[in-house]
Structures are given as C-alpha cells and as structure tokens.
Design a protein around this nucleic acid. Structure first.
Lengths: 214, 214
DNA sequence: GCCAACTCTGGACAGTCGTCAAGAGTTTCC
DNA sequence: GGAAACTCTTGACGACTGTCCAGAGTTGGC
C-alpha cells in the first residue's frame, strides 16, 4: 500500500518533471525566437506577432507560455546571459604566456564582433532600455556584473602572467574594454570593414595600460 | 521703378526671412519638447501625441512643422548635438596646468552626470537606435565624431601641459572615456549615490594612462 | 476507446500609433 | 476692412499593439 503510493508518486513526479521540462523547453525555444527577432529589429519595434512569425507557432501561444510581454522579455534577457558572459573563459584557461593571452583575447573580441554583431547591438539596446524601464533593470545589472567579472578574469590573469599588478579597479577595467568594443561595434555596423581589425590592434594596447608598467 | 522693385523685394525678403525665422523657431521649440519627452520615456515609448502634450500645442501641429516622425526625430538629434559636443571646451581653454585640467575635467564629467543624466541616457538610446535604423545613422555618427573631437581636445591639451605625447589613437581615447562615463551613468541611474564621485576619481587615472609615462 | 489534461489556433477586444484633412482662428498686407 | 496667407485644433482613418478567450487538436493514463 505504502509502496504502491510511493510508486505512484514517483511516477507522477517523473511525469510532472517531464512535463515541466517540456514546458521549459518550449519557453526556451520561444525565447530564442524572440531574441532573434529583437536582434534584427531592436527593442522598439519588436512585437509579439513578429516574434511568433519568427517561430513555428501562432501569436496566441506566447500567452500560454508567458504571462505577458515583460515576462517574455525578462526570460529572454536571462537566457541571453548564458551566451554572453563566458566568452573568454577558455582562452584564459589555455593561455600560458601574457603575449599569448593578449593575442588570443584580442582575436576573440574581433571574431565575436564580426560574427555576433547583431546580438551585441541587442545587448546594448536592452542595457539601455533598462535605463528607462524598471522591469529589466535588475537582470541587466546582474549580467553587466558578470561581464565585468569576465573581463576582470582576463585582465587579472594577464597581469599574473606578466608578473605585474593590475593598476585600475575592476569596474574601470570593464568600462574601458566595453567602451572600446562598443565603438568598434558602431563602426562595424556602419559598414566600416576595418573596425574588427582595428579593435584587434587596440585591445593589446589597452591591456598593457591597465597593468602597471613593469 | 527699379528702386521700387528692389525695395519691394527687400521688403519681401525681410518678411520672408522673418517668417522663416519664426518657422524655424517653432520647429526648435517643438523639437525641444520632443527631446524632453524622449529623455523621460526613451525612444521606444515616445509618441507624437505624448510630445505634443509636453508642449503647449496639439498633436496636429507636429505635422505642420515636420514632414513625418523621422523628420522630427532627425531634427531633434541635430538640435541635441549643439548642447553635447562643446561641454568641456571652456575648461580646456582655461586650464594652465595639467593638474588643473585633470581636476576640472573630472569634476565637469561628474557634474554633468549628476545634472543631465536623463539627457545622457537619451543620447545612448539614440546612438543605439541608429544601429537598427538607417535614418538617423549619419547624424548620430557625425555627433559621435564631434564628441570624439571634444575628448581629443581635452586629452591633447592635457598631454601638452604635461609635456608628454599622447599614447593612444584618437578613437581609442574617446572609446575609453565614453565607456567610463556610460558605466557611471548606468550606476547613477540605478540609484548608486557614489557613481559620480567614483567617476570623478577614475577620470584622472585614465587620463594619466592615455599619455606616455614621463 | 474514453476521458481528462495539455497544447495550440485564430479571431475579437480595446487601446494606441502615425498620418491626414477640413475648417476655425489669427496675422499680414494692400 | 477685406482678401490672402499662415497657424493651429479637432476628429477621423486604417494599421498595429498587447491581451484574452472559445474551441479545435493532440497527448497520455486507465
């Protein structure tokens, strides 16, 4: 009797878990369609119907999986986080010398500028949107904090390999590289072919300046 | 006869000029209402009716003075330029030593962060919008170029006073200070009281790093 | 095979958007 | 003072928005 009940409950749990998984999976799928749409059109011009059209479902389904538009967009932001805050971790782990890290980091930034430009402009769009709208602010700031960590990871390891102390606070290091990247993105999307190459050339120079001369 | 005609034409010109002036004046007035609205709500949520409500006119008048929304917004961007690209000129002109320039520049950045935060967030919003919409791009890039010039003006003068060469290209110098300012703006608008003070502390450190050690 | 739960569609809703035009109000000129 | 030009208001239009819902379609357990 007890065993039967337990078995039943285990079964129900398994089913329920499977259903929850499926539910979450579809949410993720729809959020991905939303992110594609946002990257293409920008926050200001992305509508639920447009998002649905970039998926294989009709617009009504969005309200089955998300309470409202804010809920969907919040989910998008959180899902977006995962791809954008671990970008350079492997490079840091692999590098054996300061020169190697410097070269690979610069190359990786230039590469993602070229390959993921539309996603990057979406990130800056959402971050800016959070300056006007309370709703995403907490999530956006959390992502920005983790991006700061990601950059700091690179800078600190670079300093370690170069046997020199880092010479600027962590938020400043992030601000400098973020500014550099954003300017490159601006140029790149405006059609400047050389933007990525310039970025690749500028990154080592900035890297050298955030650690103490030694 | 000839004189009469000339007098007539001069009169007509004067009248026409006066009318044009008045026309342009009203355009400027409406554009200012639009800028106030944009700074408050952001690009995504600013409508023509909302702009009109922030002015002393009705929404129909906007189409009397502007061809369409893009025309209005373009005018806004251009009008916006004038207040945001000459901000530090006087400080540069007045400074007699590198230390003085460093101190005043940092203080001015912190001051405008505190006083004009909503206008600054509008600038970043519009600049980002230009990554999605062709229509403003040219004007936005032109403003960005002039902002770069403005920062370069500061940096070059600082180097001159410090008797040391500038050590980074002009676009990089701009990118670094822009990134620094944008991060401070993010924190400031998120409610961090210390953001402006931190910015004021960080600016001299970056300034010192963009000129060669000497 | 049946019933219940889950999933998805498509249309309706109230509201807002940019745009436009008819006409009232005002100014300007002869 | 009357005609002409300029300025502004008001209301309407079609399109689009987020949201909701009735019901069709599908799946899964018994």
């Amino acid at each position: 009797m007890v065993q039967v009940t337990e078995a039943k409950e285990r079964t129900r749990d398994r089913i329920s878990r499977r259903q929850i998984d499926k539910f979450e999976q579809r949410r993720a799928q729809l959020a991905e369609s939303a992110l594609r749409t946002l990257a293409e059109l920008g926050y200001a011009r992305t509508s639920l119907r447009e998002i649905a059209q970039n998926s294989e479902f009709s617009h009504g389904v969005l309200h089955y999986y998300f309470a409202d538009k804010v809920d969907l967009l919040t989910h998008c932001v959180r899902q977006f986080e995962e791809v954008c805050v671990t970008r350079y971790d492997e490079i840091v782990a692999r590098a054996r010398t300061a020169e190697e890290l410097e070269r690979d980091f610069a190359a990786a930034m230039a590469a993602t500028l070229r390959a993921d430009a539309k996603m990057h402009r979406l990130w800056y769009d959402l971050r800016n949107q959070s300056l006007f709208e309370e709703s995403f602010r907490a999530d956006v700031l959390e992502i920005d904090r983790r991006r700061e960590e990601m950059i700091w990871h690179v800078v600190a390891r670079y300093a370690e390999l170069a046997a020199a102390p880092v010479d600027v606070p962590r938020p400043v290091a992030y601000a400098l590289f973020d500014g550099l990247f954003q300017q490159a993105l601006l140029r790149h999307l405006a059609g400047a072919e050389e933007a990525a190459a310039e970025l690749e050339r500028n990154v080592p120079a900035v890297l050298a300046r955030v650690v103490a001369a030694g």
